[in-house]
Design a protein around this nucleic acid. Structure first.
Length: 111
DNA sequence: ATTTTGACGACGT
DNA sequence: GACGTCGCCAAAA
């Protein structure tokens, strides 16, 4: 059985691979999947991730600026930030502090 | 079926 | 370096 034959499913799978206390960007995932210019699709997949059976840590996925652009898609107003801070990530004004420090690039994990 | 929009990103000005 | 435009592809209007 394939859990990741479709681009969307791959996005979900990759998102679940993000370690605790780390974050990544939509473009990083897109590039990892071979669709570097389709970062938007990753974001769209995240939106759809809510309907996925398995839990998808979409809160660990932000744009390349480390900005919590999609926080409005989460339940509460600051739920996404709360989740990130819960993992030891400092977020101020929707901006992740020490972004490159907590950034997790799936491409580097390929090795 | 066509147009607009979008949880983005890279490039051009 | 801030701002503008284009590209990507899928879904909603």
């Amino acid at each position: 059985m394939k859990e990741a034959d479709n681009f969307f499913d791959k996005v979900y799978t990759t998102a679940r691979l993000i370690p605790f206390g780390s974050v990544t960007s939509y473009g990083a995932i897109a590039t990892y999947l071979g669709a570097a210019k389709s970062a938007r699709m990753v974001g769209w997949a995240m939106n759809n991730s809510h309907q996925q059976t398995e839990e998808v840590p979409a809160h660990r996925v932000v744009n390349r600026k480390g900005l919590l652009t999609g926080k409005h898609h989460f339940a509460g107003t600051n739920l996404m930030q709360q989740l990130l801070e819960n993992e030891g990530i400092v977020v101020i004004e929707n901006q992740i502090q020490d972004f490159e420090r907590v950034f997790w690039d799936p491409t580097e994990e390929l090795t």
